[in-house]
Design a protein around this nucleic acid. Sequence first.
DNA 1: AAAGATAAATTAAATATGTTAAATAAAATT
DNA 2: AATTTTATTTAACATATTTAATTTATCTTT
Lengths: 215, 215
Amino acid sequence: MLNKINTVKDHLMGAKEKRGRYKEDFRREILNSARELFINEGYEKFSMRGLAKKIDYSPTTIYLYFKDKDDLLIAICEEVAEQFLANLSRIRAHPSKPLEALRQAMLYFIEFAFDNPNQYKVFFLTRPNVYGTQEEFMERESMARNSYLEFRKIVQECIGAGKLRRMDIDVLTQVLATATHGLIAITTYHKNFPWADRKVLAITLVDGLLRGFQK
Amino acid sequence: MLNKINTVKDHLMGAKEKRGRYKEDFRREILNSARELFINEGYEKFSMRGLAKKIDYSPTTIYLYFKDKDDLLIAICEEVAEQFLANLSRIRAHPSKPLEALRQAMLYFIEFAFDNPNQYKVFFLTRPNVYGTQEEFMERESMARNSYLEFRKIVQECIGAGKLRRMDIDVLTQVLATATHGLIAITTYHKNFPWADRKVLAITLVDGLLRGFQK
DNA sequence: AAAGATAAATTAAATATGTTAAATAAAATT
DNA sequence: AATTTTATTTAACATATTTAATTTATCTTT
């Protein structure tokens, strides 16, 4: 159940702004509940009707704040990406040893996913076209895109410092990212398989990859 | 629409066997239609109702041959794995250059997935626990498990021949497999992202990985 | 060949999903 | 206080998986 929260300076504002603020806050509250539901119940059990019950409004109300389920999913993705991006930037702020920064970034990527499996599922394993067409993606300002670019910068610095082989920056970035994604995706999605210890797998993968692309 | 096909030696068999054979054949026919529907319409559009319409039976009839949708999905997975395994074994039949065999196996893995995106989706991106619990998986005879073991053998031979670093065989196998999976999964699932050429990515990944784990 | 038993298939229905259109309640404006 | 605008809900549609009850077909036995 949501609490209506606009109280502080209601009397100071015009009604129009009050409306807008209310609408924004409500949207945020729905988003918070949705995220919580995701974390607790998991990706596959999440439903609009379930969310409606949780926030104690009718399902249709959600559609006044989000175009459809995809729209809500994207919003959650963006939140996750924002959080992820913040930590990634912090890692890049240590430019003394670029290769070590890259190593840490990849390991953090894995750790983040292991710690937030449901967010990761929303982000990477929702059905395609959620973020629009190919052309749109890189043009539209989004945390998802920015995360990629941030990771790309880290790789760039390694090449620039002569620590990694000089090659197409996007190819290398994508190879490193997708390989890392693979470990995360399959171990969190296919829990039935008798995997080796995930941390061992993570370190082995990252060190192997970096060794493979080192000069 | 299915054709009832038991004709050849119906009169030679007892009725009980005839029934059994009919049931088996019918199950197989449903499976074939289901696979076809998958390939043509894609994973997300597949439904029991659609399948029922295609085979010109009521939806409930399918439930007489498959416990539920998961059961049918597993059956398709096994078919895919069987096909995959057959080709993998053929690659391993060239033991002269084990590292080249491994390289080819990985590239084949990727190629197979790119050529059969929908089968791949069923196999790797259906929801979890489809194959039972952790313990069951390796005990139960399944094509999925056998494929893993076959790939493991190839890796084993590379280590045995001194071509790869001596390390835990399962860790190495899983790292190579999951990294490869990552490239496949994310490029077939997130088509919206402006990926580099997939073949370039594939070769870069495989060569980089092998270089990273070479002695 | 007819009657009874077994198997196969269907119809009907229960439950759950996302979503839209029409109706109602609440709030703001005049 | 009346009217217009905004917020919310109720009812309904379309589709999904799946179970129970019922009908149809097939086999077995006399």
